[in-house]
Design a protein around this nucleic acid. Sequence first.
DNA 1: AGGTCTGTTCAGCT
DNA 2: TAGCTGAACAGACC
Length: 266
Amino acid sequence: MPELPEVERARALVEQRGLGRVIEDVEDGDAYVCRPHAPGEIRSALVGRSLTRTHRRGKAMWFESDGGGPDLGLHLGMAGRIVFDEPPAPRSWDRFALVFADGGRLALRDKRRLGRAVLDPDLSTLGPDAGTVGRDAFRRRVGRGTTPIKARLLDQSVVAGVGNLLADETLWRAGLSPRREAGNLDDEELDRLRRALRAATRDATRKGGVHTGRLIVGRKRREPCPSCGATLERATVGGRTTFWCPLEQPATGAVPSGYAGTQSAA
DNA sequence: AGGTCTGTTCAGCT
DNA sequence: TAGCTGAACAGACC
């Protein structure tokens, strides 16, 4: 499930292997993935050009093209990944692809078909990147409203890049219950949450993805809290399946006993 | 073999 | 308004 760390790794992959290669053809025939573009529209805009720079904010990534061409935006959706120089996937799982003049290709491989490819993507609805958001902006944007803090973190217009697993891992590290009302967190708690978010994001990016998080590893196996051994709570928060430790992430205010956001992951 | 679950985004509702 | 619900996608899982 691509969240910010997976997208950052995908961006780095394009940076490493996708720049400066002449685009000879574009497979943009999936009108759903390429909406609102008609088939051939992205192709016309990019054939003959090369990618020159890569960017990412949250889960969105985009690439500049040379000669004054448009940017190409890619979104991995829920199951997408970027593959380089592999033969086309069976069953048309490659929803979009750049075919290079050197014979290689860049494909958006996505069984679920929830990824997107678009020219000049609209980034105006995204908040600041979750990995680099500053203290004051984080306090202001996250620490308000009546919605549960987890739902606030998942809102891409508040802070960009947090998905379900990274939200659970972050709240666990910060010792904050996912059900706390966002506007009721004080500055100390918000700062602790931001540090936990940055650390969880950095660790996950380094280790290969959000599934490497300490809480997340045991989550599916229904193991107890990796820190204190308590049985994890499970409930729907913000419309998403949520796990948390009832002892270290208490329902109201108190600072947790042991584990805090300043601690690094295993 | 069918029913449930998965997670992100977005439209539509209150 | 802000927050919530369900649709869309299609495969994984039991």
